[in-house]
């Protein structure tokens, strides 16, 4: 049995890391907004979904033009990623401006309910548009990057099986890593990133330092939503078929990842996402083996959430979260 598990490790690692980076980038959106507003922006999963639809629409549109198909697919994808990020970034910023800002001083539950409302609104809006344009709310994008690559991990050691990846996996992985590295740099090394951290820690005092707090909050929503939307495009390219409800489960998992890493902590979100992705893939590959066939791969989420609960019992603030202690 151990051998079987070991054999599958290369594939589990590749699939898990890819899925994990997707969770991680979406988790960033949750964690950044939470860090600055203590708001769980449940609409973030729907921003991701909207990004997937905007990106797919653009890809379908662009691949329809003859001259575009002469361009390398990667150029096309990067263009679409950037445009989608811009649009979903503006969408997120707009949502904050219209729906959350007027409730800034309301009890915490109220913006939370509003966020859930926005989720439904986006789901139905996207569904409406998709049905209007395509006659069906389940949409399949053009297939890109479907080339399979075999990785001969068995040549490293005979305990491993070979792993295989679609080119799109690599694209997802590389793009997600780039997004995370750039964000980490932005937050930790730039002036506005520092302002963002300052606002997260003490909004009033930051405003005394001539920081326009509303601007920083808008920026936070823009960045989180742009990353979420771009990840939506990557998801669509990777899995081909999307519907208006993909944001719900994925958002929930990404939120879980954010909590696992320590909500409000940016590196925590990245770590939580990767861990959750790997655990999920590990469970999906080995669960039936481990339980002698009692639980199949479809119980992978249960496994992942049991781990989450276990972590939170022993470290309620999450893996990289700091225990909350008020110093007077």
């Amino acid at each position: 049995m151990l051998n079987n598990i070991l054999e599958s490790i290369p594939q589990v690692a590749i699939d898990g890391l890819t899925l994990g980076t997707v969770y991680a980038v979406i988790a960033l959106g949750y964690t950044m907004v939470y860090g600055i507003l203590e708001l769980i922006n449940f609409a973030h999963g729907e921003i991701f979904m909207t990004g997937a639809f905007i990106g797919t629409a653009m890809l379908l549109l662009l691949t329809g033009f003859g001259w575009v198909s002469a361009l390398p697919a990667i150029v096309l994808l990067i263009t679409v990623l950037l445009l989608t990020a811009l649009l979903t970034g503006l969408l997120g910023m707009g949502i904050e401006r219209v729906a959350y800002r007027p409730l800034r001083n309301a009890p915490k539950l109220i913006p939370l309910i509003t966020a859930i409302g926005i989720s439904f609104l986006l789901q139905d809006l996207v569904r409406f548009i998709a049905e209007l344009k395509k006659g069906n709310y389940i949409v399949t994008g053009p297939s890109l990057f479907t080339h399979q690559i075999k990785i001969h991990t068995s040549s490293i050691s005979s305990i491993f099986n070979d792993a295989s990846i679609k080119t799109s996996f690599i694209i997802v992985l590389v793009s997600a890593v780039i997004m995370m590295v750039v964000l980490d740099f932005f937050v930790n090394k730039t002036r506005w990133g520092m302002a963002m951290r300052a606002v997260a820690q003490d909004r009033d005092t930051a405003s005394l330092m001539s920081v326009n707090v509303n601007k920083v909050i808008s920026l936070t929503f823009f960045i989180g939503s742009a990353l979420g939307g771009a990840t939506g495009v990557l998801f669509a390219v990777q899995y081909g078929t999307i519907d208006p409800y993909i944001g719900f489960i994925l958002g929930l998992k990404a939120f879980t990842a954010a909590v696992l890493g320590g909500i409000g902590n940016i590196r925590g979100a990245m770590l939580g996402g990767l861990l959750l992705g790997v655990m999920e893939m590990f469970a999906s590959a080995n669960l039936s083996l481990l339980t002698g066939g009692v639980f199949g791969a479809e119980y992978k989420d249960v496994f992942a959430f049991i781990v989450l609960i276990a972590v939170l019992i022993f470290k309620p603030e999450g893996l990289l979260g700091k225990p909350v202690a008020e110093k007077v």
């Binding site: 002036r191 520092m194 951290r197 300052a198 009033d204 930051a206």
Partner: peptide, 21 residues
């Protein structure tokens, strides 16, 4: 402000830089 309100998780240098934002 009352109670100093240093940004606790920013470094001392970053706290100073915030003043000159």
């Amino acid at each position: 402000p009352e109670g100093r309100r240093i940004f606790p998780k920013l470094s001392v240098k970053e706290n100073l830089l915030m003043g000159a934002f």
